[in-house]
Design a protein around this nucleic acid. Sequence first.
DNA 1: CAGTGGTCTAGACCACCTA
DNA 2: AGGTGGTCTAGACCACTGC
Lengths: 235, 235
Amino acid sequence: MARIKLHEQVRRRIERLIADQAIKPGAQIPAETDLAGEFNVSRTTIRNALNVLEQEGKIERTRGRGTVVRQPRLGQLLGRLLSFTEEMKLRGLTPSNRLIEMTQTVPSTPIRTLLRLDSESVWRIRRVRCANGEPIAIETCYIPWSALNEQDAENLGNGSLYELLGRLGRAPDRSEQSAQAASATPEEAALLNIESNRPVLRFERLSFDANGEPIEFVTSTYRGDKYSFHVLLKR
Amino acid sequence: MARIKLHEQVRRRIERLIADQAIKPGAQIPAETDLAGEFNVSRTTIRNALNVLEQEGKIERTRGRGTVVRQPRLGQLLGRLLSFTEEMKLRGLTPSNRLIEMTQTVPSTPIRTLLRLDSESVWRIRRVRCANGEPIAIETCYIPWSALNEQDAENLGNGSLYELLGRLGRAPDRSEQSAQAASATPEEAALLNIESNRPVLRFERLSFDANGEPIEFVTSTYRGDKYSFHVLLKR
DNA sequence: CAGTGGTCTAGACCACCTA
DNA sequence: AGGTGGTCTAGACCACTGC
């Protein structure tokens, strides 16, 4: 029986209120002390929950004034680590995948270094990622061989890799991600159904499990015209 | 007399230790309880300070194991709101500016809406941003007229806008930023000293002061070959 | 002025790691 | 078993807002 953290329970209940429009965008959320009383937890726990909601862009806090529900204005905000599947669902799109390649190889030295491997092999998984059936991105993902057996790997045609890794006890916990603008190579252009040299967003992501062990290295190429990346920054 | 927050004092002292290599990358930082004893503050205060350092990518915490100084591996990480000037300094580059345009205009409707203006005019400031003398980005920045007088504005050729706004009591506190890949327009290409249609990273940023009032809207176009954007994401 | 979120204290127990 | 960071409590005072 998995123990669910208190502040997570609180967060979900408030998220639910927002999603159901029980508290409408722009409207005020009860004060932190009131929430603490209602949920029968300490104010610290309430604040932990609200910190996450703030980071996700769902609420906005102002000292002396209160906390209000934000009306999402730009696209979906990405302040936390999400899988492609999760992200597309958040944006209200239906994700799907097309598996292009799934092989076991020994990767290049830089990738071996990032994944802290010597000469072990990895799974190399290439997928075209679609939203509402339309190709949005190409993802090439390197998973240490030891993390995945062949049978598990077979389900990846449709499923979420993060979900799978979670069931194996190696859920991603944090990642370093970089983004860069580039031109689509002919191969990318063909897979994404765009012309060569059109602008694309290229991401590299190195993810770690809760032990700080590298669990995946991913490069993704997103169509420049169909995708943008949003963050909330605090001073 | 400005009151400096306790956790900020603590953060700076630890940052100093890291910068001076008194604690080397990979080495362990004293436990939170020990730090609390040393600095004579509560553990909560220590944790507030460490949270920021973690978000900035300077330390890495693992439950049961401890906290170590991260060796920066990718480029500079951007988890917090920085000005161009600050960012370039962090990357060890020398920032400079070339002012292209500085006018007072009434902006288009979408920008008026973002800045919550009716028909008031704004300062429209276009600058080429350079690192070590080389053009890196074009920045077009819209500041509500009321926030800046003509004399202040004159210093912008060389100075930091954020510093100036801070002195006027309207320092940016948070911002919403989006990033997109695109092709350089002929004008952009000329200013950035690249060919037309080369990939660029286009950012839009809407910043707010501590009262939640919009203080600037900025669009920036960065050379795709000279710039990438890094973030640390937590699950 | 009362009410809000921001900061801070001094404890406590837990989950997890290393030895 | 002892030490670590993660969670949580029950208080307190402060800075700021808006009436």
